[in-house]
């Protein structure tokens, strides 16, 4: 499998607050990588840097072998990077279906009936089809999170960035989520998943990256990474 994403010496700070500190890692095609770290470790900022919502101070990002460090957000999404927002950002004046249609037409580049068909398929897969005509602004938090996932999938991503989508789910819902993420991965989509619900994360990912203050403090096989002292110290608060 070839390398899909390569992050080299990425740095970003807001004044004294460092959200990415000389961060380097890579992701191969088809892989599922988990990102752990305490609040404020720079996890969501990392996603913002990857999607282009934030510009890096230093370092480069390569996607599909191309340097995308200075590529605008819209183009990165068209090229295959999609994300879900930790705090859902639905298009509140639109229906659930229309939210997905934005992604299908603008990012996936589909037109007319094909775009509509794709949005319908995604809604079927994510269990939102019965709410297709609901106003996105009136959804419950859980459905908003589902919509985040559906909208990201409607872009036909090759790299899917999931930002804390398991929070607040019941155990049964969590299992459904796990199996649907596994299905997305087995269909060929590469996944990077930020999650505090560790057992859900560990059920899916093959590799873990642990961040603290924007710095990578551990990386590797999930079980051995979780067992490292440095990880226990910052993440679980164990001395």
């Amino acid at each position: 499998m070839s390398q899909l994403l390569a992050v080299n010496h990425l740095s970003k700070s807001f004044g004294a607050v460092v959200v990415a500190n000389d961060l380097s890692f890579s992701v191969t095609e088809g892989e599922a990588v988990g990102i752990l770290g305490p609040n404020g470790a720079g996890k969501t900022s990392l996603f913002n840097l990857l999607t282009g919502a934030l510009r890096a101070d230093n370092g480069t990002i390569e996607f599909c072998g191309k340097d995308i460090t200075h590529t605008p957000a819209a183009l990165r999404c068209k090229n295959g990077i999609a994300r879900s927002f930790q705090i859902p950002k639905p298009f509140v004046g639109m229906t659930v279906f229309e939210n997905c249609l934005v992604a299908a037409t603008q990012a996936a580049g589909l037109r007319g009936a094909r775009a509509r068909q794709h949005a319908i398929e995604v809604l079927n897969d994510t269990g939102l089809i019965d709410k297709a005509n609901h106003h996105a602004g009136k959804l419950t938090l859980l459905d908003r999170k589902r919509l985040e996932m559906a909208r990201a999938l409607s872009t036909r991503p090759s790299l899917l960035l999931l930002d804390e989508i398991a929070g607040g789910l019941t155990e049964a819902e969590c299992q459904t989520l796990i199996s649907s993420i596994k299905k997305i991965q087995s269909a060929g989509t590469t996944i990077i998943w930020i999650e505090h619900v560790v057992h859900a994360l560990l059920a899916v990912v093959e590799r873990l990256i642990v961040l603290d203050f924007g710095k990578k403090i551990a990386e590797g096989d999930p079980q051995t990474t979780m067992a490292q002292d440095a990880v226990k110290a910052v993440y679980l608060g164990v001395e």
Binding site: T51, G52, A53, P72, A73, A74, L75, C77, K78, A82, R83, F85, K89, P90, F91, V92, G93, M94, E98, L101, V102, A103, T105, Q106, A107, A108, R111, A115, R151, T155
Partner: peptide, 24 residues
Amino acid sequence: SNRGIALTAIRDNESAAAELGVNV
């Protein structure tokens, strides 16, 4: 048109629209 749905997305949430492929 497709432009219109992009425009409506900008109306509702500009930053999300940009990250969903809309050249704002």
